[in-house]
Design a protein around this nucleic acid. Structure first.
Lengths: 207, 207
DNA sequence: TATTCCCTGTTAAAAATTTAACAATAATTC
DNA sequence: GAATTATTGTTAAATTTTTAACAGGGAATA
């Protein structure tokens, strides 16, 4: 499959979640306008995304929910499921682990890291916390290929270097410290303060 | 000032943070390419954003850091500073409070809410946690105008309703449950699982 | 069986965002 | 003081994303 647009990929993840939800409610088919309504987007956008992934619904019956869930899985997930590490076991790191814990997602957080001895060598929601010194070792052993960084910003560049060195393929940086990594590593950054200041701006300038 | 593009607003927040950082290092002026380098974006983008906010640097000396910080403040902040509430005192809520605690930001988290009696009537990092039943009362008393939702997804719609009813002007929804609010309320949504699945997708399809 | 209606799939247009191109000009060099 | 260099500000082009428009066709209706 040709590479999908960024935004479509984001929505696929959300479609899947909504669809799973509908499935548990006993629904088997869904119209573009229904799915759109659930995500508060437009039906056209739904249909366009579905077109891009090469799926087809049936006229007047909409889309088969199970089929769509499976297809999205084929697009996003790998067969083995990707294995993830969280670096930094503060509140944000814990939130992540907690978030992924219940879901039947293919994404598995299999290790966490910290330097604080109060946190290392303990297990939180089924995820063991190792000392950061053991990063390379554990990444290899556990076949981790994605890292989520939730540490204080000062140490982010070194952490990223270590992750890349250890052979990770994707990084999700949740700190306010912008990062750059080699081209072959996929990087996604998100800054909580920025999104809050964005809200502040648009609240101030609304009308 | 005419309304700025979404993305420019996001970057302004990041410029300011970087600039403050440079200021503490004793730097007084900065070139577009330097600022660009700090955020890992292009110099053109920096210059264009600066153009949009109507600021000018001086040729060969770059931009005056203090002036820019002040200007960005005038654009994003209000004189009194906006007052924020966090709804849901789980790990994510705590992360937010912690994050904003140290910063000299104009944004102030002045209250938090939960329904769990283990959490209510306590203070975390200087922020008092009230029972959710008191939302309307406290929002009024504390003149809160922005709410951050970090609760379990099931209860999000009711919470949003209550926030809107209480007269809030902006909502930052961190749950995976899409929300819709009246037009006069600014809504920003962010979904941690989605961004993780996005990384997973691009890692899988990289090159 | 003809007609209407609803919903999909897709192409085309519009809007938002990023990137490129370059003119202007102050400082520096020769 | 002429030529070169570095850096800004801005217009234009390219890219990405969203929205609109509408043809097609199966189901329902009559």
């Amino acid at each position: 499959m040709k590479n999908l647009p960024d935004k479509t990929v984001e929505r696929l993840s959300q479609y899947r979640r909504s669809l799973n939800n509908q499935l548990t409610k006993g629904k088997t088919n869904i119209f573009s306008h229904e799915l759109a309504h659930l995500l508060h987007i437009t039906p056209v956008q739904v249909r366009r995304d579905i077109m891009l992934i090469g799926y087809s619904g049936t006229l007047r019956k909409g889309y088969d929910i199970k089929e769509m869930i499976n297809l999205i899985g084929k697009i996003i997930d790998t067969d083995e499921g990707q294995r993830i590490a969280v670096i930094g076991m503060g509140n944000l790191g814990k939130a992540f682990i907690h978030y992924l814990h219940e879901k039947g997602s293919k994404l598995k957080i299999v290790a966490s890291f910290d330097v604080n001895p109060d946190k290392t060598d303990k297990t939180y929601a089924g995820v063991h916390c190792y000392h950061f010194d053991r990063l390379a070792e554990i990444v290899k052993k556990e076949e981790i290929n994605i890292g989520i960084i939730t540490t204080p910003p000062e140490v982010v560049p070194q952490i990223a270097d270590k992750l890349v060195e250890a052979g990770i393929n994707g990084i999700l940086n949740y700190t306010p410290k912008p990062l750059s990594v080699p081209d072959e590593v996929y990087l996604e950054e998100y800054d909580m303060i920025t999104s809050l200041e964005k809200v502040a701006y648009f609240v101030k300038h609304r009308d």
